[in-house]
């Protein structure tokens, strides 16, 4: 017997409705705590107190803001590259060695997710501080007096690399673990040296992981606030830090809002490029 089509349709219809009900709390939360404040920011960015675009024009016409924006991109790029260089071998080892090594490494990475950015940033302040162990070690090796480490671009970049490595590793790992090791074996049997098998086969197959990890880390970096503010050079602010200063020191809500909107647009543009070439649904592996 063929079941009546209508009942099936009604059934799936009602379960669809139920699924939407499940989403309702999340949607309500997003609306109240995300969309409304975001709307407010956009609103502030064009009011002074009447409608105006002057916050945008002053941002876009001032070379200082462009330098901050460019510096932020530079820092994000450098952090992304170093995070990739350090994470790739690690993710590769986790996938190739497996077993206890993989378990322990993945556990360590998961643990760093459970430790807040703020705590880890403070840890770097201790390590890099003027009386901290790193300078002591440098001086013990004869670099005396050791250079100032804290409140430099170097220290904030170093800490951001460290903070973002877990994201990069997981993005790489999720792609690498799906690569069939028989591809590498096949390459070797066909005459590829271990390096050639890696370079010609494994590396291209892991490219989606590289793209994902880099997109993720780069975008997180663009909006990074705590670490650059606490560790970085006050003269070379990143854009999120600049927004903080605009509000805290100058009470320039309009300007801060316009800067936020520009940061948001830049981020969205990167996502759009990613979506165009890769597809947002693949971002988490």
């Amino acid at each position: 017997m063929v079941p009546p089509v209508g009942s099936a349709a009604i059934k799936s219809g009602s379960s669809d409705a139920k699924a939407w009900l499940l989403l309702l709390p999340a949607l309500a939360f997003l609306a109240v705590f995300f969309l409304v404040p975001l709307g407010q920011v956009v609103f502030f960015s064009v009011m002074d107190p009447g409608f105006t675009l002057k916050h945008y024009t002053s941002f876009l016409s001032d070379s200082f803001y462009w330098r901050v924006l460019w510096g932020t991109f530079q820092t994000a790029g450098i952090v992304t590259i170093f995070a990739l260089l350090m994470s790739y071998p690690l993710a590769y080892m986790i996938v190739r060695m497996g077993g206890h090594f993989a378990t322990v490494m993945l556990l360590i990475i998961a643990m760093s997710f459970w430790t807040s950015f703020l705590v880890r940033t403070f840890a770097w302040m201790v390590i890099l501080g003027n009386n901290g162990p790193l300078r002591a070690i440098l001086e013990a090796f004869g670099w005396s007096p050791a250079p100032q480490l804290l409140f430099t671009r170097f220290s904030s970049t170093l800490a951001m690399v460290h903070l973002l490595i877990p994201f990069m590793v997981l993005a790489l790992y999720s792609v690498m673990k799906k690569i069939d090791m028989n591809f590498v074996r096949a390459a070797r049997s066909l005459g590829a040296t271990p390096f050639q098998a890696f370079h010609r086969v494994f590396l291209p197959l892991s490219a989606p992981g590289i793209v994902n990890g880099c997109t993720l880390v780069f975008i997180m970096c663009l909006g990074f606030y705590v670490t650059p503010v606490l560790l970085g050079s006050p003269r070379e602010q990143m854009i999120a830090g600049l927004i903080g200063t605009q509000i805290e020191e100058f009470l320039e809500f309009g300007e801060a809002s316009a800067t936020s909107v520009i940061l948001l647009l830049v981020t969205l543009a990167i996502f759009a490029i990613y979506n165009r070439f890769v597809g947002l649904d693949k971002l988490w592996g």
């Binding site: 028989n182 096949a186 390459a187 070797r188 049997s189 005459g191 040296t193 271990p194 197959l205």
Partner: peptide, 20 residues
Amino acid sequence: VPPHQRNIGMVFQNYALFPH
């Protein structure tokens, strides 16, 4: 002798053709 110098051809069960 490492695998790449053995000059042995191999066909795997799941073919292992390079997808790229």
